[in-house]
Nucleic acid binder design. Sequence first.
DNA 1: GCGTGATATTGCAATATTACAATAATTTTA
DNA 2: TAAAATTATTGTAATATTGCAATATCACGC
Lengths: 119, 119
Amino acid sequence: MQYHAFKLKKMGFTKKHIFSDQQNQIANYTKVIGHPARVSIIQYISEHKDCNCNRLVKAIGLAQPTISQHLAEIRKTGLLKQKIKGKNLFYSINQDKLNECRRLVNDFFVKTQVNCSKL
Amino acid sequence: MQYHAFKLKKMGFTKKHIFSDQQNQIANYTKVIGHPARVSIIQYISEHKDCNCNRLVKAIGLAQPTISQHLAEIRKTGLLKQKIKGKNLFYSINQDKLNECRRLVNDFFVKTQVNCSKL
DNA sequence: GCGTGATATTGCAATATTACAATAATTTTA
DNA sequence: TAAAATTATTGTAATATTGCAATATCACGC
């Protein structure tokens, strides 16, 4: 996608291209956790073996398409693993990815703190 | 605010009331970091003493009102401190709050990991 | 007071997100 | 094969976010 001056007068989208890959990556990960439904979904899956979409719908109290949509958002970041068993689709946490995410976000916090104390 | 069935047919807002305070709090903090401009702003402030809005505008490359708006979002969470010096408004990181935020988010990750390994 | 500089606010347009009903797709079970 | 169960997709509406121009506000220096 090309950016033209006459198209840039008014904008409603994030100008990702002016930020570094790392900054965008941090934002992408935290954005996924930046909604209570997704926090809740991740927590529930981590606590329950053989967790499928329906169980989440009942446990959380949002409609099935809404849960399915949130699951898709979380999946995009690679934080979920899937296992098909009959007509069920069981979700589990991709622990490697979760750890990678934790380290990236924690690194952001720690580096910020270290920089602060250098001032 | 009361919720009525006839008002709930179509919705574009987050149903925060069905989640726990902790879940909402985690989401609130991560949501702020969930935009590369705000990641960038926090990083820049942590790296530069006496950082004001104008410096951020020049360093990041977004318009002044946009930076000001992002600053307001970050301020809402308590992550910023302000110091007025003449006509300048210098921002710095509220390190206590940043630490609280780091612990809350890290706790979420660690608890999730621990839960996973219990399954 | 007047002009300058710094920042916040307002108003607006474009895009993104959130939520759900309806439907489609897929698989199991009767 | 038909019905039931599970989940994804599509369509739609409401709300939220992002970004900037224009303007307002406030403090300083003259």
